[in-house]
C-alpha cells in the first residue's frame, strides 16, 4: 500500500519532458519532489506563477510569493508572474499540459467531485472547475476509500460534481487505474496490494485484463 508520498512518486512518473503542469492542493503538491531525472517541467500555480520552485529557506519567505495553497514558495530561473485572468487563459486555452488534483469521488465515466458536501462542508471549487473543464490530461491523486472505509471510485458520484467525463487516470494508495468507456481499467497494483484488496475497495466497474503488474517506484 502507498502513503501520500508514494502516490506522489508514482504520479511523478507520468511527467514528460517539456510539460507545463498544474498541481492541486494536498497530495498533488508532493509530486514536485519527485520529478524524474533528465526532463524539463514547469509548475504553474493558478494564483499567478509559472516556474514554481521549492519552499524557501527559513527567513527567506516572501508574503508576496505564494502558491494556490497559500504556502510560501520560491521561483525557478525563467519564472514569470501574471494576473488571474491570464493564468486561466493558460488553463482554459490548454497551454497547460497536465493537471493533477485531489478528489472526494471519481466515477467510472470520469466525473469528479471535490468541492462540496451539502449541508456539511463547502470550501468552494477554487480553480478546479476551470482546470477539469479544459485540461486534456487530468490525473486524480487520492485515497481509494474515505475515512469511513467507503469506496471513492464509484459508478456515479453522489456529491455535487466539479466536472463531467474529464478524469483520465487515478492513482490511489492501492492502484493506478485508467478511465475507459467500460469503467476503471486496472493498470498497476500498489506494492503488496492484491487484486482482491482492489476489488473490495472499488464500487465502480473494475476491468482486470491479464496479469496486473506491481508498481515500480524509483
Amino acid at each position: 500500500m502507498l502513503d501520500k508520498n508514494g502516490i506522489a512518486k508514482r504520479i511523478a512518473k507520468e511527467l514528460k519532458d517539456k510539460y507545463f503542469v498544474n498541481l492541486g492542493i494536498g497530495i498533488p503538491t508532493l509530486v514536485a519532489n519527485y520529478i524524474p531525472e533528465g526532463i524539463e517541467v514547469e509548475f504553474q500555480s493558478e494564483n499567478g506563477v509559472l516556474g514554481m520552485g521549492p519552499f524557501p529557506y527559513e527567513g527567506e519567505e516572501d508574503a508576496d510569493i505564494i502558491n494556490a495553497g497559500k504556502q510560501t514558495i520560491t521561483t525557478m530561473p525563467g519564472a514569470s508572474f501574471f494576473d488571474s485572468a491570464t493564468s486561466f487563459n493558460m488553463i482554459r486555452g490548454q497551454h497547460v499540459d497536465l493537471t493533477i488534483l485531489g478528489a472526494m469521488e471519481v466515477s467510472e465515466d470520469g466525473d469528479i467531485a471535490n468541492w462540496k458536501i451539502p449541508g456539511k462542508m463547502v470550501k468552494g471549487m477554487g480553480g478546479a472547475m476551470d482546470l477539469v473543464a479544459s485540461a486534456e490530461n487530468i490525473i486524480v491523486a487520492m485515497m481509494h476509500t474515505n475515512k469511513a472505509g467507503k469506496s471513492k471510485l464509484l459508478k456515479k458520484c453522489s456529491l455535487p460534481l466539479t466536472g463531467v467525463q474529464c478524469v483520465k487516470r487515478v492513482v490511489t494508495n492501492l492502484a493506478l487505474l485508467e478511465i475507459t468507456d467500460k469503467g476503471f481499467k486496472l493498470l498497476e497494483r500498489a506494492p503488496g496490494v492484491s487484486l482482491e484488496d482492489i476489488k473490495k475497495a472499488t464500487e465502480g466497474t473494475l476491468i482486470i485484463e491479464g496479469d496486473i503488474p506491481e508498481m515500480i517506484l524509483q
Binding site: 527559513e58 519567505e61 505564494i66 504556502q71 510560501t72
Partner: peptide
C-alpha cells in the same frame, strides 16, 4: 502587515 497564511519553509 502582509500576513502569511501558510508559512512553509525547508531546512538548509
Amino acid at each position: 502587515e502582509k500576513r502569511i497564511e501558510q508559512r512553509t519553509v525547508r531546512t538548509r
